[in-house]
Amino acid sequence: MLKIVTRDLQSFQNLMMDQMDGQGEIGKMKSMLVLSVLKDSKKLPIPE
Rank of each mutant, 00 (worst) to 15 (best):
M1T: 09
M1R: 04
L2C: 03
L2V: 03
K3V: 14
I4Y: 04
I4G: 02
I4R: 05
V5F: 14
V5S: 07
T6R: 07
T6F: 14
R7T: 10
R7A: 00
D8G: 00
D8M: 00
L9H: 00
L9M: 06
L9G: 04
Q10D: 11
Q10W: 05
S11W: 05
S11D: 15
F12K: 03
F12M: 13
Q13D: 07
Q13A: 08
N14I: 08
N14M: 08
N14S: 11
L15C: 12
L15W: 05
M16F: 11
M17K: 13
M17G: 01
M17L: 13
M17R: 11
D18I: 06
D18F: 11
D18Y: 13
Q19W: 13
Q19C: 06
Q19K: 08
Q19N: 12
M20L: 15
M20R: 13
M20Y: 15
M20H: 07
M20D: 03
D21A: 09
D21R: 15
G22R: 12
G22D: 04
G22V: 12
G22F: 04
Q23P: 00
Q23C: 09
Q23A: 07
Q23D: 08
G24A: 09
G24W: 01
G24K: 09
E25G: 00
E25Q: 14
E25S: 10
I26P: 05
I26Q: 03
I26N: 02
G27C: 02
G27L: 11
G27N: 09
K28T: 09
K28C: 01
K28P: 00
K28S: 06
M29G: 01
M29K: 06
M29Q: 07
K30P: 01
K30N: 10
K30H: 08
K30D: 00
S31C: 14
S31N: 13
S31H: 01
M32I: 02
M32G: 04
M32Y: 09
L33K: 10
L33T: 11
L33W: 07
L33P: 00
L33H: 13
V34W: 10
V34G: 13
V34D: 04
L35C: 05
L35N: 13
S36C: 08
S36N: 04
S36K: 04
S36L: 04
V37E: 04
V37M: 12
V37D: 09
L38S: 08
L38Q: 02
K39W: 03
D40V: 05
D40T: 03
S41Q: 12
S41Y: 10
S41W: 14
K42F: 03
K42T: 12
K42Y: 12
K43W: 11
L44V: 05
L44N: 12
L44I: 01
P45M: 01
P45S: 07
P45C: 05
I46D: 10
I46S: 12
I46G: 02
P47E: 03
P47W: 06
P47G: 01
P47K: 08
P47M: 07
E48V: 15
E48F: 15
E48T: 14
